[in-house]
Simulated assay, not measured.
Amino acid sequence: MNAQNSINASATARTAIPDDKDMLRAARDLTKDISEARPLVYWSDMLGSAAVGYAALAGAILVDSVPLAIVLGVFSALVLYRALLFIHEITHIHKNALPGFRTVWNLLVGIPMLAPSFTYEGVHTLHHARTRYGTAEDPEYLPLALMKPWSLPLFVLIALLAPPALVIRSAILVPLGVVIPPIRKLVWERVSSLSINPNFRRRPPEGDLKKRVVWQEALATAWSWTLIASIFLLGWKPFLVALAVLSLTAVLNQLRTLVAHLWENEGEPMTVTAQYLDSVNVPPPGVIAEIWAPVGLRYHALHHLLPSMPYHSLPEAHRRLVGHLGEGSTIGKANHTGMWSLVSRIARSTMRSN
Results as ranks from 00 to 15, higher is better:
92 H>D: 08
343 V>R: 02
35 S>N: 13
329 S>V: 02
112 P>W: 09
44 S>I: 06
332 G>D: 09
210 K>T: 10
140 E>Y: 05
10 S>I: 12
89 E>M: 12
354 N>I: 07
56 A>I: 02
148 K>D: 13
156 V>M: 10
63 V>H: 06
158 I>S: 10
226 T>R: 12
164 P>E: 12
283 P>W: 11
81 Y>S: 09
318 H>S: 11
235 G>T: 09
14 R>N: 03
146 L>V: 00
220 A>W: 07
15 T>A: 07
343 V>W: 07
244 A>D: 00
157 L>T: 13
51 A>Y: 13
307 P>Y: 09
216 Q>D: 05
5 N>D: 12
260 A>V: 06
89 E>A: 00
354 N>W: 01
265 N>K: 00
18 P>R: 11
76 S>K: 09
271 T>N: 04
351 M>W: 14
288 I>V: 15
24 L>W: 02
82 R>V: 10
66 V>N: 04
47 L>F: 11
266 E>I: 12
99 P>C: 12
66 V>W: 15
297 L>F: 07
205 P>G: 08
63 V>I: 15
204 P>W: 11
245 V>R: 03
1 M>Q: 14
255 L>E: 04
282 V>I: 15
269 P>H: 13
265 N>Y: 03
106 N>P: 01
92 H>Q: 13
163 P>Y: 12
102 R>V: 06
171 A>V: 14
234 L>N: 14
223 W>C: 08
148 K>S: 14
236 W>M: 09
326 G>K: 02
82 R>S: 02
295 V>H: 06
107 L>S: 04
297 L>P: 03
320 R>G: 05
79 V>F: 00
143 P>A: 13
17 I>N: 05
135 T>D: 10
267 G>D: 14
145 A>R: 01
80 L>R: 00
287 V>C: 03
325 L>E: 03
119 T>K: 03
202 R>H: 04
260 A>M: 12
343 V>A: 01
62 L>Q: 10
208 D>Q: 09
329 S>P: 04
119 T>W: 01
250 A>L: 06
15 T>L: 11
79 V>M: 00
149 P>E: 04
281 N>M: 00
5 N>R: 10
107 L>I: 14
271 T>I: 06
310 P>V: 04
11 A>I: 08
60 A>M: 03
295 V>K: 08
237 K>F: 05
313 S>R: 03
57 L>C: 05
299 Y>W: 13
188 W>R: 05
302 L>G: 05
91 T>V: 15
176 L>N: 01
341 S>F: 09
115 A>M: 01
123 V>W: 02
48 G>C: 07
138 D>H: 01
323 G>S: 11
240 L>H: 04
24 L>R: 08
59 G>T: 09
147 M>T: 08
22 D>M: 07
3 A>L: 02
49 S>F: 05
121 E>K: 01
